[in-house]
Design a protein around this nucleic acid. Structure first.
Length: 549
RNA sequence: UGGUCGAUGGUGUAAUGGUAACACAACGGUUUUUGGUGCCGUUUUUCUAGGUUCGAGUCCUAGUCGACCAACCA
């Protein structure tokens, strides 16, 4: 409720005014994806906006698939879109399809023809383009523009009945070929496509264009506020014109700026290329900015909603820092993730004064941010794995970790002091030797010793192995589509680093998909769907902030 | 080189003619058995030029810069 104090974005402002002035008693919005790709971060903004609006204000939101182009649309996409919206935490009032309205839309077209607002045109695609004119010169009328209403009616019906080949005829709105808005120069509203549609099958061989489907679908559903991105601004004039001539419910279109996020691309066309050309594993590759990719990467629904909330809604060009997204997911994961220990790049640590063959179980907290999550016991023994980078042969100043003669605490265990280390013939450190202080045990420390650093570890005899996928940004430049040449030339070659033999504490053998973990001092990780019983695979969601390096 | 929409710290968003603010980032301090988290603090803002007004980020005019618009895509 304190949310109400925060200021409204410009769309909420409009709605708030519409409600106050009693223009509407409640509102209806819609999220209108085309099922020709997976949902991405850009869609998340639109989803949060459209569904969020009807949480803030009285009303409801429909899910409507804009499926008017049978050649690019598939049910696989429909299913993924529904799953992603639900996973994000939203519920639609009705599930609709533009294709549900094909009969109505056909009748609308007939009505337009009846009233002399549309005609069948025999011009080819090229000819129409040539006669359209451009920004500075007006277009010229099609020679078919003055066909009689009767002829148009029978021709349009013949189009519907499959009497013509693809591309040989179109239905065009009769507006004004010298209109300053190019979209108003007799736009095509129906085209012939002998193609199988994912829902209507082979019933139709003519399909309405976007401009003759979207606004009409809005109207049919009594959408009060039809929200889209700014590239549709020029369409609004046509949107209003068609609704007026058709004399149907006057839905209104409002536009906001699409969000751009640095070091990635959010364009279905480009994402499809990455998938088809195998630059990534698929639509749900954890490097993809798709909802499914982010889910697999370990992002939480809350973090994505929070991100959308924080970047807000605007009308200007923008480039949002991906760092904010990472902040949002850390904020959530810090609260909910279970702390565990895993050693990614191991080096052996031998505790010389710990009895050979002895083991003990030490208590450690599951989540210091939430004591209610309790504790668990972890095995400890003479030989441990620790992180290679936690030992320095030549420590820099302010080095808190292990080095010859230095003391550190093994997390939830004992304080140790490094007494020696071994190298192989190539000069690589292969083992660290330390002594431990038995009275420094975590929770009952009477040693009086102080260790500046704390490091994580796993007991060698008890550890399991795992594969770790370390992810980095997909592109090496902030705005790949702004660069000269192919955006794919700017893919980060190190966007994925695979570690085959990491050591994880035994607890992690029970990890399930959907569990969120913090690998202590490293980052947040989730189990990947390609894991097997023998080799669990963990994906890095995002690293912990690191003030050291 | 026509039309449309925009321009507030490094980034995103507020301020609805009346003290330019919030968040992220950056930097410093503090706490800490995660160099994490938390807490405290610091740096950095109204595109330009005119005008209206007691008062302009906000209104007006002109300019500059940016985005979008000539698919039988959505």
């Amino acid at each position: 409720m304190s949310e109400k104090e925060s200021s409204l974005n410009f769309i909420e402002e409009i709605i708030s005014n519409d409600l106050e002035s009693k223009k509407y008693e409640s509102i209806i919005t819609r999220f209108p994806p085309e099922p020709n790709g997976y949902l991405h971060l850009g869609h998340a903004s639109s989803i949060c906006l459209n569904f969020g609006l009807t949480k803030t204000f009285p009303g409801s939101t429909n899910l409507r698939f804009d499926d008017t182009n049978p050649t690019t649309e598939e049910t696989e996409y429909v299913e993924s879109i529904k799953k992603d919206i639900q996973w994000l935490g939203f519920e639609w009032k009705n599930e609709f399809y533009a294709s549900d309205y094909f009969d109505t839309l056909y009748d609308y077209a007939v009505k337009l023809i009846h009233n002399n607002y549309a005609y069948v045109c025999d011009l080819t695609s090229d000819e129409i383009a040539n006669q359209k004119g451009n920004h500075t010169t007006p277009g010229v009328n099609s020679p078919y523009r003055n066909r009689s209403i009767e002829e148009n009616l029978s021709l349009f019906e013949a189009m519907k009945n499959g009497k013509f080949e693809d591309g040989t005829k179109t239905l065009r709105a009769k507006i004004d070929m010298s209109h300053p808005n190019l979209l108003m120069r007799d736009p095509i509203i129906y085209r012939i496509k002998h193609a199988h549609h994912h829902r209507t099958g082979n019933k139709w061989c003519i399909y309405p264009m976007y401009d003759f489907a979207h606004g009409q679908s809005d109207s049919i559903e009594n959408i009060t506020h039809s929200i889209c991105t700014m590239e549709f601004i020029p369409h609004r004039e046509l949107y209003d014109w068609l609704i007026e001539k058709l004399e149907i419910y006057p839905s209104k279109q409002y536009e906001f700026a699409r969000r751009n996020i640095n070091y990635t691309v959010t364009s279905k066309r480009k994402l499809l290329q990455l998938v088809n050309e195998k630059f990534v594993e698929g639509w749900d590759d954890p490097r993809m900015p798709t909802i499914s990719g982010m889910r697999r990467r370990g992002y939480t629904p809350w973090s994505i909603r929070e991100f959308c909330k924080r970047i807000g809604i605007g009308k200007r060009e923008n480039m949002v820092d991906v760092g904010l997204l990472e902040f949002c997911v850390r904020e959530d994961l810090n609260k909910i993730s279970k702390r565990v220990m895993a050693v990614l790049e191991p080096i052996k640590l031998t505790i010389e004064n710990y009895p050979e063959g002895q083991e003990e179980f030490l208590t450690t907290e599951n989540n210091p941010e939430n004591p209610e999550e309790g504790t668990r016991n972890i095995p400890f023994s003479k030989t441990l794995w620790i992180e290679r980078e936690d030992f320095a042969e030549f420590p820099e100043k302010k080095w808190f970790r292990l080095a010859l003669g230095a003391m550190v605490r093994l997390k939830s265990a004992y304080i140790i002091e490094c007494t020696d280390f071994k190298k192989d013939n190539d000069g690589n450190v292969i083992e660290v030797i330390a002594k431990y202080f038995p009275d420094s045990k975590s929770g009952s420390d009477t040693s009086g010793l102080k260790a500046k650093g704390v490091i994580h570890w796993v007991s060698a005899a008890h550890a399991k192995t795992a594969q770790i996928n370390l992810y980095d940004r997909l592109f090496r430049v902030e705005d790949p589509s702004q660069e000269e040449g192919d955006f794919k030339d700017f893919i980060n070659p190190n966007s994925l680093t695979v570690i085959q033999n990491a050591y994880i504490e035994p607890e992690l053998a029970h990890a399930k998909i959907g569990d969120y973990f913090q690998f202590l001092r490293k980052g947040y990780f989730v189990l990947d769907k390609n894991s097997s019983i023998d080799t669990p695979i963990f994906n890095l969601t995002v690293g912990l902030k690191d003030n050291w390096k």
